[in-house]
Design a protein around this nucleic acid. Sequence first.
RNA 1: GGGCCUAUAGCUCAGUCGGUAGAGCAACGGACUUUUAAUCCGUGGGUCGACAGUUCGAGCCUGUCUGGGCCCA
Length: 502
Amino acid sequence: MTTDNSPATEDDLPEQLRIRREKRASLIERGIEPYPVAVARTKSLKEVREKYTDLAVDVATGDIESLTGRIIFKRDTGKLCFATLREGDGTELQAMLSLDKVGQDQLDAWKSDIDLGDMVSVTGEIITSKRGELSILATSWALASKSLRPLPNDHKPMSEETRVRMRYVDLIVRPEARVAARMRPAVMRSLRETFNSESFIEVETPMLQVMHGGATARPFKTFSNAYDMDLYMRIAPELFLKRCVVGGIERVFEINRNFRNEGADSSHSPEFAMVESYMAYGDWRSIADVTRSLIQNAAMAVAGSHVVTHHDGRQADLGGTWKEISLYDAISEGVGEKVTALTSIDELKKYATKLGMKIDPKWVTGKLAEEIFEHVAQDKLVEPTFVMGYPVDTSPLVRAHRETPGVVEKWDLYVDGFELATGYSELIDPVIQRERLIEQAQLGAKGDLEAMQVDEDFLRAMEFGMPPMGGMGMGVDRLLMALTGLGIRETILFPLVKPEAD
RNA sequence: GGGCCUAUAGCUCAGUCGGUAGAGCAACGGACUUUUAAUCCGUGGGUCGACAGUUCGAGCCUGUCUGGGCCCA
């Protein structure tokens, strides 16, 4: 936010903001720097907490330290003042200022100049109070940064909107926000370690693409001035990772952002982190094993167990091998009739209508089958479940099932009722691939905004020979959701939010 | 895209039947040398999301718009 120092604006400020600006001005007038370049700091609060774990009540250690933190509570009792300091990871430590240690002037200055939210450096002895609280008893103190805005009530949760709009404040006041922010990098690290231990190589492929592909989704479109042409934000890295495999990076992965210009809700964000991986000489089964390892190792890394505890206390067991169901078996069970990939669209429409579903006339046969599946089975997909065998017409990059006609070797992994990951035996025949992409392009020409384009360079790469392989993709945000039970906007530090009205 | 809920002090929220706007925390002034959301006494702080309408009178009723949340397709 830009600062506006015009007098009229200053006068319009709410009382609490105006008072703090006045305090800042007063400090400067008295020659006290409210934003010093450096303050004394010999240890973190965490280091002090870890060093003194078993002190008795009312003990003076003789150890002098300089500690910093944000003031989160203040308690003044006249000639003795208490303050709770908090540092970034949430570690707190009490600071004490007494008249006999700091003198009248410094004590008065503390009372008048220091507000909740200010950052300070306190120098003094590490002690325990008469109530046994580990504390630093100040001999001197200095302002590290003056806060010009009051912190929200530390004891009431901020509204969901305020939390998202002011994540920086959320991180100061809400422990769950601090945990969530630190869980994402822990999961990322775990994913990379799992890949590394299996000799996968991490690559970075283009986010700005000349044509979009690798998934069926609406892309964000942008424009390059230098190249004078339209570009697309990538919807998936798939086609580039497969080029890597053609080039001999036989086990490859990428963890990076994808962008999809579609709806946003509690499980969809317009930009989301995705891990995608390909394994030469693997297939849908071997890549499913890799996926399970990635998830279970991530659970172990953040929860110390394959059983994770959600924020609401509910536990989810991600351990062991996971249930597998067949997509078409589940549909057949749901509609009470035998349904296969060869069942006609008219039959499917009849079943869907009987189920009370609204049918989009643009849906192809396979899409309708998937919709029926979601309708009849989604509630049953809470424990980790591989749904095996998808229709060919919605999966243009997957090879045909080795036994079942009309089906491709694709699984979706469901956890907590949402789709967490997908995996294929990849289509490696360039001639069939071209046919599939041409079909997609024809859908696109008919107005399907999610259809893929024909990527001639990708087809050329395939024509050089692509080894048999398994591939997978998994939403990192959704993995965090599965591990924590949080909504996607709580797993993303700064989710897209519309600007506040003036 | 459709439905429902929601917007009031810095923060979290009350606000009855349409009749001059309330609480807790926070802030300001004062007291207090062992507090743990300290306590006690006192004080201030509001364009009730925006615009229009109904009405003698609107935080409250109606409409439109904007932001946020939930559910559905």
